[in-house]
């Protein structure tokens, strides 16, 4: 299992900009928003949590199709499926690798990008906490979407259509918790809901994704 994690991480690094691409995309989204909305600091600060969350979500989506597609094409997935590691474990590890390469860097960078959006200082820690608890669900749900579409020629667009609606609960609770938190309200309820979705996704979605992979391999 650890060997698989190390391999996936190594592949992401060597493929040129494993960490970099998602982050760069995130930066561009945060840069574009003020151009569209105007430089008013008050408005930007108010929409910052939402924009950062949507940006993180889109950045995450970008690299999803690589979770299984390359392994499917070069035959590795067949070999992994017949290896001693259960397919559910393979899915979980690959989602973890995806999170380490995209979700975690996004979480770490979010406070800095928040500064671009005139986020107030309590907002930094709230963005960090909500993204830290929320992005693992994004990777796991994404792995499920990737497993569904792995056999398809142009699965990328379809996968976005399938995955984005599944992101809605995490997005709502995540952005809501950040907004409430930085306004000084009690943000426990949305935060717990989001953490619950993350925990539930990690616990159950590997089984659904493995079932989808089995169907796509046969």
């Amino acid at each position: 299992m650890i060997a698989l994690l190390i391999r996936d991480m190594r592949l992401a690094m060597r493929a040129g900009g494993g960490f970099g691409l998602g982050l760069a995309f995130f930066l561009i989204v945060t840069t574009l928003v003020p151009f569209g909305v105007g430089p008013d600091a008050e408005i930007l600060a108010r929409i910052a949590p939402g924009i950062l969350w949507v940006g993180a979500l889109l950045a995450c989506l970008l690299s999803l199709d690589r979770i299984f597609q390359l392994d499917f094409e070069d035959g590795s997935l067949d070999l992994l499926a017949t290896s001693p590691i259960p397919l559910e474990g393979i899915v979980a590890i690959k989602a973890l690798a995806h999170w380490l390469v995209t979700g975690l860097p996004l979480t770490l960078a979010a406070p800095f990008f928040g500064a671009l959006m005139h986020l107030e200082s309590p907002g930094f820690s709230w963005m960090f906490v909500t993204l830290l608890l929320g992005t693992p669900a994004l990777s796991m749900i994404g792995a499920f979407g990737a497993a569904l579409t792995v056999g398809l020629k142009r699965g990328g667009l379809l996968m976005s259509l399938l995955v984005l609606p599944l992101y809605i609960p995490s997005l709502i609770f995540g952005a809501e918790a950040a907004t409430r938190g930085m306004a000084g309200f009690n943000a426990n309820a949305p935060l717990l809901m989001m953490a619950g979705i993350t925990a539930g996704s990690i616990a159950l979605l590997p089984f659904a994704a493995a079932a989808a992979l089995r169907v796509n391999l046969r």
Partner: peptide
């Protein structure tokens, strides 16, 4: 299979080492 399941960016040793540890 026809496809070897090799990763182009990994060295020969890394490829083999990976499949060895998986098993």
């Amino acid at each position: 299979a026809h496809a070897d399941g090799l990763k182009a960016t990994l060295s020969v040793e890394e490829n083999l080492q990976f499949w060895a540890s998986v098993h």
